[in-house]
Write a protein that binds this DNA or RNA. Structure first.
Lengths: 187, 187
DNA sequence: ATTAAAAGACAGACAAGTCTGTCTAAGTTT
DNA sequence: AAACTTAGACAGACTTGTCTGTCTTTTAAT
């Protein structure tokens, strides 16, 4: 369908620009010129820039969740599947377009009272925690049910700091240290 | 001296606004009207908005390092002094003006190639890691010299994620989980 | 099959507002 | 008298979003 093709182009272009240069620093004009579409077309598919921001966040999240889940579950079952999220991050970090966490970036840029964007981001983070809980449940036989949540949250914290600190310092020791600590708490 | 009094007013006002509403969302006009000074006066003390941004970061950091060090060293010596950084964060979180980490916020807003700001932020984070190293060295007798750096970095990662995640989710479990995990790795 | 209509994309002018930073002119303090 | 502060006009460059009018393609009706 041609209709959704234009829309896809907008989302992909906007996502790349928002992630690389920031939400506020990316203007509508930049998006349309890079995507090669007209402004009227853009506003025919999205009612506002915020609307594009939402689409951007969802686009990034959908791909991320799919990719990291695929990556983890192709590893041998057991602790390796849990640690795999840090190996995934290592690859992500080495990719030349790595630019930290899009959620943190975006939430830092929008006004504090923007609940639409904030809710979307919290939703994404919670579904990532759920993914970790699934990995923990499936790969640690000895784990007690009541410990799953707390352990998963700790792994989540380690992962999140590994993302933002490797980005901030432009080195990968945060990923290595986080993985190392993770390996100690799941044994 | 009147000269530095005006300058201080600008720094304090700008800091409060930048931290609360973001760097890009805070205009020069807002700063001068809130601080009650003229625009020409502002540009008499700072050559650009970026210059004010630097002053803001340094203002926040100076106070933070002083406050958290004072807080920790008034606690009983031993592991409690290390864990104190999370208690400090708990108070910080409960304060009504808590708004996450100013470094992360700022780095998310500025262009990627702004090295002046980026260097300042990396410098601040490294000096915070040094503070943790000092706490670790002084309060863990059994620690081996070669383990100090790695352990301090892990504690740093936990602290940083506790800040940003408690801010993001608007709850304090990240602080509690981070402190709990920290207590386990320093025993 | 031919014609009519609808839908969407295009370029780009435009409004209305934002921003930073400069400058003028008047007032105040030392 | 010199130095600083004030208010605010101003330039120039941005922003998002609206709107007009043209062109092409797809769909529907006869």
């Amino acid at each position: 369908m041609k209709h959704s093709e234009a829309k896809s182009r907008i989302i992909e272009t906007a996502s790349s620009l928002f992630y690389k240069n920031g939400y506020n620093s990316t203007g509508i004009n930049e998006i349309i010129s890079e995507a090669g579409i007209a402004k009227a077309t853009l506003y025919n598919h999205f009612k506002s820039k915020e609307d594009i921001c939402l689409a951007y966040l969802r686009f990034k999240d959908t791909r991320f969740i799919k990719d990291i889940e695929t990556f983890a579950t192709t590893k041998p079952k057991g602790k390796k599947q849990i640690l795999a999220i840090f190996d995934f991050l290592q690859l992500f970090f080495q990719a030349k377009d790595f630019n930290g966490c899009w959620c943190i970036k975006t939430v830092s840029e929008i006004p504090k009272d923007n609940e639409v964007i904030r809710n979307e981001i919290q939703k994404q983070k919670n579904s990532f925690i759920q993914l970790i809980e699934k990995l923990v449940t499936n790969n640690l036989e000895k784990i007690k049910t009541e410990d799953i949540s707390s352990l998963s949250r700790k792994i989540y914290l380690l992962y999140e700091s590994a993302v933002s600190e490797s980005h901030l310092h432009q080195v990968d020791w945060p990923i290595k240290e986080a993985k190392h600590l993770c390996s100690k708490i799941i044994r």
